[in-house]
Design a protein around this nucleic acid. Structure first.
Length: 86
DNA sequence: ATAATGACGTGAT
DNA sequence: AATCACGCCATTA
C-alpha cells in the first residue's frame, strides 16, 4: 500500500457534510507533514468515487480543485459542509 | 541518485 | 489582516 493508495482510501471514507484538511489526510496516511504530497495525489486522481472536494486547507480555505465534479465550493455547499452565511 | 513540481503548512514581516 | 519565504513530503522524468 503506497502513500497515494492510502490517501485515496482515506478521502474515499470522508462522510458527506464533512471535510478534512490536507494535513489531516496526510496524518492519517502516515505522514503528518505530507500535506503537499496529498495535493499532488488529489490533482492526479480522477476517480469520481473519491470525494476529493471534501479536502480543504488547514486554515479553512477550500484550496484548489480540478473541477472533476464541478465547483468545489458548490459541492461542499450542497453537502452542507459549507455555510452560505457567516 | 538527482532535479523539478505541486489542490500545503507555519512562522515571520 | 495580508504577504513573503522557507520547509516538507511523495511522485515522476
Amino acid at each position: 500500500m503506497d502513500f497515494t493508495e492510502r490517501v485515496v482510501a482515506i478521502v474515499r471514507g470522508i462522510p458527506e457534510g464533512k471535510t478534512l484538511s490536507y494535513g489531516e489526510v496526510a496524518a492519517r496516511a502516515g505522514s503528518p507533514r505530507a500535506a503537499r504530497a496529498v495535493g499532488v495525489v488529489m490533482k492526479n486522481n480522477t476517480d469520481k468515487r473519491v470525494p476529493c472536494h471534501r479536502v480543504i486547507r488547514a486554515n479553512g480555505t477550500l484550496g484548489g480543485y480540478n473541477g472533476l465534479r464541478g465547483e468545489k465550493a458548490t459541492l461542499l455547499r450542497n453537502e452542507g459542509a459549507l455555510t452560505s452565511s457567516q
